[in-house]
Computed example of a mutant assay.
Amino acid sequence: MKNSRDTDLAGRRTAAQEAKAALLQAYKAAQEADAPGRAARLAERAAISAAREARRAEREAAKLAEKQRLEAEAAERAAAAEAEARAEIEAREAAEASRIARVLEDEAARKAERDRRYAARKARKN
């Protein structure tokens, strides 16, 4: 506001209104002058946002793929452990069956030897 000789209330009020109107006109002029630059900035922001969203989607896809790979590896390890446990149980059962078979064979051989000795003793007595 320039130094004016009107210092009464009405003069100050009109000067303030004129200053506000001048500021509003300057703002509107700046907005109109900056319209092409604004459009370019908005387009740039949209491109940056789209690129950011694409990178986020790519990261999520990579995380999902990694999670699936880890789950597949865990399932594979679990299956291998289960197969190993099954093989160990089968080997233990086979060893037990073999031991039982040897015990039965030994028992049969012992009985056969006893029967042979008994038959030989009977043959000597007669």
Rank of each mutant, 00 (worst) to 15 (best):
R86D: 07
E73K: 08
A74N: 10
A62Y: 06
R117W: 05
R38D: 07
E88Y: 03
E66H: 02
K122H: 07
A39L: 15
R121F: 11
R99D: 06
A75Y: 01
A61M: 10
A72C: 01
L24F: 05
A51G: 12
E96K: 07
R52V: 10
A50M: 12
S4E: 08
E53T: 12
R5Q: 08
A81L: 14
E105Q: 13
E60I: 07
R77T: 02
I48H: 14
A75P: 00
A43L: 07
Y27V: 14
M1S: 05
K28P: 02
I100M: 04
A47S: 14
R114M: 10
L23H: 08
A65I: 04
R55N: 12
A83N: 05
E107P: 00
E32K: 08
E107W: 02
S49L: 15
E82A: 14
A46G: 04
K28A: 05
I89G: 00
A79R: 14
A94D: 08
A101Q: 11
R56L: 12
A108D: 13
A91L: 12
E90F: 01
K63T: 06
E82P: 04
R12S: 06
R77G: 00
R124D: 12
A91P: 10
E58I: 02
I100H: 03
A75T: 03
A108I: 05
R69P: 00
A78I: 01
R56N: 10
A22F: 03
A87N: 02
A46W: 03
K28M: 08
A74K: 15
A33D: 15
A50H: 11
E82R: 09
E93T: 07
A10C: 02
R124K: 14
N3Q: 08
E44Q: 04
A97L: 07
R59A: 12
A120C: 04
A101R: 13
R41L: 08
D106M: 15
K122R: 15
I48G: 14
Q68V: 03
A26H: 07
A120F: 06
R86W: 03
A85P: 05
A47T: 11
A39R: 15
E71K: 06
T14C: 08
M1Q: 04
A29E: 13
Q25Y: 02
I100C: 00
R69K: 11
M1G: 01
A81C: 12
A83P: 01
E105S: 07
S98G: 09
L24C: 05
R117V: 01
D6R: 13
A87Y: 01
M1D: 06
Q25T: 04
R114T: 09
A79G: 00
E93I: 05
R69L: 12
E113A: 15
E105N: 06
A22P: 00
I89V: 11
A83W: 01
L9E: 11
A112C: 08
K67L: 13
I48V: 13
E32H: 03
R5S: 06
L64T: 15
A40S: 08
A74R: 15
Y27M: 14
A29Q: 13
A39I: 07
A19G: 00
R92Y: 00
A108R: 15
A26N: 11
A112K: 15
R52G: 12
